[in-house]
Design a protein around this nucleic acid. Structure first.
Length: 607
RNA sequence: GGGGACGUAGUUCAGUUGGUCAGAAUGCUGCCCUGUCACGGCAGAGGUCGCGGGUUCGAGCCCCGUCGUCCCCGCCA
């Protein structure tokens, strides 16, 4: 028996055709001698009618049909009468009159119905993932995922990129996230590691002369999960020879445009660029959400006299920001908000300034006006509407004699930046900046460039890689000798792509010269021997004619999350894991037999 | 590792101050129904209140512990 049509394709123009539909029983409506079955498959839902007078055998079968049974309906397409057309269904103008119904498979009563509007809790959904995936929403999510992957492949292929697979079982490299390890049976006590990314292999492919590589690659990181983080996730990974940063940007902008067209979304490219420094100063974070107005630096408006009068620490920055369209707050609401802000500022190194009260005082009224004006200017840049009395202005000041932590300017910027996001989230129903409006403004892309090359490790009191060890520093900083004189000022040719405050991907131009690589390792206080131990095979490869190269990797799951409007990666991954990295359906991880452990030369220290 | 929310029927949830508090809806089972499409009507079954301990005359409710799910911080070159 062959399916002639799917459950989503029959239309009025098919009336009179003999058809065979195969699918799951979505719902059954029993009117006695007339039974309706809604048949569901990936493509849609079609109503099948069993009439006791026309076909008593089919009708008798339908009496036994239950939700989620798999059935075959054989019959004729019939136009529905005018008064029983269902405009809510794509197939609502017709129905299939069955002259034969076959039950191909019955089904236990499911713990929840894929036809249900209200969805079960996630624990149940994950345990019975096959039922959850029958839901049209999940089918749509995975369809979009498939089509985006396809669009990316087509685009990159047309740009000359080869899709090349790299090993899942490879060597553990000591930097970065915790590895998932795979014990070797043949080599007692030795382990493979699952790749955190194909980083080294893709660089070696450049050394191999593959010129342009990409891969939709699974990556594994044994770190704690978040709504947007899974232990295994998928990256659109690419690398090319002889690139400028701009070359990489153009490729990414190209395939993102193609990817977003899958759901009919238009995006504007090229994307704006911003240095890391500017991102920190204006947004207090390295992944700015441009859907909200930036912070405003009010430091220069607070003269030493004013600071003394208002009990504000000299020198340190004063930062303000606006949350748009919050509306008038009552006195109690304002008080509660202020105390909430104080609470989130925590250790009282920073304080919130009451602008309303400032304005009532003759001494400070001028200052209050100036602050409002500056915040208004920023808001105008943001949406050309300017400051209204119903926007919420927040000004954060450093307290005098504060904890050493707050002396760190970076800490202040980050803290205020966090507050900016927290308050925006709190009032999101009011300003609706996070809602889709159906135009290109829904997607605020941004390239963040010039990341610092080194990062101070407070625990070991050493400089460490901010990116990864093969990221190239700025040529200028090398020539100026800052590697030795001022490591903090060295910029990396590293860049992130950010969308609506979410880090979508990260990449860099790599080091291709051995002398530079050596210089980097020395700056980090790493001996040649140690470097060799950690990255030996790659350092070898570098010596055999390495072309300048660079690339990037973007989180495919996160892109799909944005495109589907999902709030969690689990909604766009067929078989995801829980926050404790458990697969509730397969019940993994699990214990294994003594025999397996013996073969792998492993003895658990804890059962 | 830390903080928070939640856990009651298959499912989604309500359950007041510790004292008819074992409830609703939906699903399920049976019967009835020829135009429904979240069909409708009648009847019925369905519970270790996550688990363990404690307080109390008495615990779904209070306390301690534990397990699970979710969110956040740390972590994620």
């Amino acid at each position: 028996m062959t399916r002639t049509h799917t459950c989503g394709e029959l239309r009025a123009s098919d009336a009179g055709k003999s058809v065979v539909l195969l699918g799951w029983v979505n719902r059954r409506r029993d009117h006695g001698s007339l039974i309706f079955l809604d048949l569901r498959d990936r493509y849609g839902i079609t109503q099948v009618v069993m009439d006791n007078e026309l076909s008593p055998v089919a009708h008798a079968k339908a009496e036994h049909a239950r939700p989620e049974y798999v059935v075959a309906a054989i019959g004729k397409v019939r136009l529905r009468g005018k008064d029983v057309i269902n405009p809510k269904m794509a197939t609502g103008e017709i129905e299939v009159v069955a002259n034969e119904l076959r039950i191909l498979n019955d089904a236990k009563v499911p713990p929840f119905s894929p036809a249900e509007e209200a969805i079960a809790n996630e624990e149940v959904r994950l345990k019975y993932r096959y039922l959850d995936l029958r839901r049209p929403e999940m089918q749509r999510n995975l369809e979009i995922r498939h089509k985006v992957a396809l669009a990316v492949r087509e685009y990159l292929s047309a740009q000359g990129f080869f899709e090349i697979e790299t090993p899942f079982m490879t060597r553990s490299t000591p930097e970065g996230a915790r590895d998932y390890l795979v014990p070797s049976r043949v080599h007692p006590g030795e382990f493979y590691a699952l790749p955190q990314s194909p980083q080294i292999f893709k660089q070696i492919l450049m050394i191999s002369g593959m010129d342009r590589y990409f891969q939709i690659a699974r990556c594994f990181r044994d770190e704690d999960l978040r709504a947007d983080r899974q232990p295994e996730f998928t990256q659109i990974d690419l690398e090319m020879t002889f690139p400028q940063q701009e070359t990489v940007f153009a490729v990414v902008e190209g395939f993102l445009k193609a990817a977003f067209e899958v759901t009919g979304e238009q995006i504007r490219a090229p994307f704006p660029r911003m240095t890391y420094d500017e991102a920190i100063r204006r947004y207090g974070i390295d992944k700015p959400d441009l859907r909200l107005p930036a912070m405003v630096d009010l430091t220069s408006d607070f003269t030493p006299e004013l600071r003394t009068a208002l009990k504000i620490e000299q020198e340190l920055p004063v930062l303000g920001f606006t949350v748009p369209r919050v509306g008038e707050l009552s006195g109690t609401a304002r008080k509660a908000l202020t105390s909430d802000i104080r609470a989130s500022l925590g250790d009282s190194a920073l304080d919130v300034l009451d602008i309303a009260r400032l304005r009532t005082n003759d001494t400070f009224a001028g200052l209050a006006d100036k602050i409002s004006e500056k915040l208004s200017d920023e808001l105008k840049v943001f949406d050309e509407r300017g400051l209204a009395s119903r926007d919420l202005n927040v000004v954060i000041t450093p307290k005098p004699g504060v904890a050493a932590q707050a002396k760190d300017r970076l800490w202040i910027y980050k803290k205020v930046g966090q507050l900016r996001l927290d308050l925006a989230k709190r009032f999101q129903d009011k300003h609706s900046a996070f809602e889709k409006k159906g135009n290109a403004d829904d997607y605020k892309f941004l390239w963040v460039t010039d990341f610092p090359f080194f990062e101070w490790d407070g625990q070991t009191h050493t400089w460490t890689f901010a990116h990864h060890p093969f990221t190239s520093p700025h040529e200028d900083d090398l020539i100026a000798g800052r590697m030795e004189s001022d490591p903090e000022a060295v910029r990396a040719l590293a860049y992130d792509i950010v969308l609506n405050g979410m880090e979508l991907g990260s990449g860099s131009i790599r080091i291709h010269r051995q002398d530079v690589q050596g210089q980097i390792f020395r700056a980090l206080g790493m001996s040649d021997e140690e470097a060799r131990l950690r990255f030996g095979f790659f350092l070898d490869a570098l010596q055999y004619g390495t072309p300048p190269h660079g690339g990037i990797a973007l989180g495919l799951d996160r892109i799909i999350m944005i495109l589907t409007g999902a709030t969690s990666l689990r909604e766009v991954i067929a078989f995801p894991k829980t926050a404790k990295a458990i697969d509730l359906m397969a019940d993994a991880p699990s214990q294994v037999s003594e025999q397996q452990l013996r073969e792998l030369h492993i003895r658990p220290t804890k059962a």
